[in-house]
Design a protein around this nucleic acid. Structure first.
Lengths: 231, 231
DNA sequence: TGTACATCAGTGAACGCGCGTTCACTGATGTAC
DNA sequence: TGTACATCAGTGAACGCGCGTTCACTGATGTAC
């Protein structure tokens, strides 16, 4: 149980767990989450289907692991991206975060669809997925907090009804010092724009409308930056 | 073949076609599009599974019919909503359109997911779905055109790069007179915000963030209205 | 109006395939004395 | 260090179930003379 000298069994277990997740990830890209099959994974790895149950308690547990992995992967990249620009260049930070999300989604469309697309029927995501999911949004919230701290103000109306202010409590208090209601609404709107754009593009709704997706996305990011008062 | 005196066969065919679509719609809500099953529909209607093939050439054809029906249903409601307010009250029109989309999505989440959620793996939507899909967006484009005509201007930056202007051609020219590039970018951004918000809410990403969904949506609609220069 | 023929809806069996999960079991790896 | 025992990974058969699609066929409905 000590840390350094891994036992042969533990090493094998770790490797096979990875191999199962990788194979399942490939599956996912081909048949989608609803058709993800324990037997197909086992077949792919040349083992009995029952053996997979030594590693994942059920098909749903395997799906949960894939979801957590996807959030962690994207979350890690967003964190890295946010940290890669000068802390006080908020416009650049927003641009990097937005482009990281879109680039990741485009390079791994099935993983994006797994976490931000339609829910998988009959599957209820357990609590384990909540914390990884937050890794993606937390850097955005910190960006808003820093903008507020810097004395910036979002564009547009700044008067938020009391009812809304109360309803936003979880968002507003997810950073220290807490966000003002106006920043909360502006941030949630920008969040909807970003993920809305990526979903529409990835799911094929822009195909007949916009010819140059990269250029258009840059414009949308610019617009949202203005809306957030960052430029 | 004359119009009034329908033959008994034609009447029966129409009714059974409807019954199949209704049953498939129920299926959809329970197991999702990927698991939609011709045999289950047949079982539900008490007929042989092979009989369904007299009505739909394949499972995919059935899925296509459901998609077309969903777009037509939502599109019709959006059209009605847009027509239900005074033509020159553009702020009200945007509000109605936005709320129609969200209300429809919340009341029929599986149908919303079918058309705006993750693509169904292995299914490629045929050309037949393009026109119905446009029914949803066309009233929004006409709203933008009317705003432009009325001399309004979207908030934020109005200088659009030439590259983007060229890429937006399909959108800009989908109404008469065509939209300016600034209106195109603003409109596409608002579109992304609207559908992004609805997807995030419906797919469970707001659950831990926002307590009062109705109030928050009203705030987002208000923000986008300002962003479009409508209020 | 009645009859002969063509069209169409629906059947049931069949093809070839898939799935998640459990269970008793074998044989290898790890651990404690 | 060597041995006895416990733990664990992996097997293969089984349970009970599902699927899309095709095909030859029956019997009812529609049509043309």
């Amino acid at each position: 149980m000590s840390s350094a000298p891994r036992t042969a069994r533990a090493v094998a277990r770790e490797q096979l767990t990875r191999a199962i997740l990788d194979s399942a990830g490939t599956q996912l890209a081909e048949v989608g989450p609803a058709a993800l099959s324990v037997r197909a994974v086992a077949r792919d790895l040349g083992m009995a289907s029952s053996a997979v149950y030594r590693y994942f308690r059920s098909r749903d547990a395997l799906l949960t692991a894939l979801i957590v992995e996807a959030y962690d992967d994207l979350g890690g990249r967003v964190e890295e991206g946010a940290a890669s620009v000068p802390p006080d260049d908020l416009r650049a930070r927003w641009g990097v975060v937005a482009h990281v999300v879109r680039d990741w989604a485009r390079s791994q469309p099935h993983r994006y669809a797994l976490v931000y697309g339609s829910p998988v029927p009959g599957y209820a995501a357990p609590e384990d997925t909540v914390a990884p999911a937050r890794r993606v949004t937390q850097p955005m919230l910190e960006l808003l907090r820093d903008a507020q701290r810097a004395g910036l103000r979002p564009a547009g109306p700044t008067d938020v009804p009391a009812e809304e202010e109360a309803g936003l409590t979880p968002v507003l208090e997810s950073v220290e010092p807490p966000l003002s209601p106006a920043w909360g609404v502006a941030g949630l709107t920008a969040w909807a724009t970003l993920f809305g754009h990526v979903s529409l593009e990835l799911f094929g709704h822009m195909h007949n409308a916009v010819l140059d997706q990269d250029t258009h996305f840059a414009c949308v990011v610019d617009r949202t930056a203005h809306d957030l008062g960052l430029a």
